[in-house]
Amino acid sequence: MPIDVKTVKKIADLAKLSLTSAELEQYSTQLEKIVDYVEQLQKLDTSQVQPLAQVHDTTNVMRPDEVKPSLNPDEVFQNAPARQANYFVVPKVIKGTTA
């Protein structure tokens, strides 16, 4: 199936990836080849087969809700690009108001 640059651009937008026009061209060619390859699955009749999400077919794994020690905030926030008290700082997303 042809995967054009427009499709790759749309998918990259969904995945929040900025790609250059050269990258869009390259990925479109490569993805088309990979998607052509995976098309072979359509040959199999799977109408009577249930999808398998994980191999042990376990259902919910429950545990008692107990208070336990957690990570030290200072050690956790040392990896944060911007911190204010025990919060991560993000750009303002609400438009039209003043801070």
Binding site: L14, L41, V49
Partner: peptide
Amino acid sequence: TRRIVLGTYVLSAGYYDAYYDKAQRVRRL
């Protein structure tokens, strides 16, 4: 990047059944 794009593609509206759901069924086989 290539794998994120491919993974987003096979999960996206219109392609989920043809690719992701199909692959999960073949995985059972």
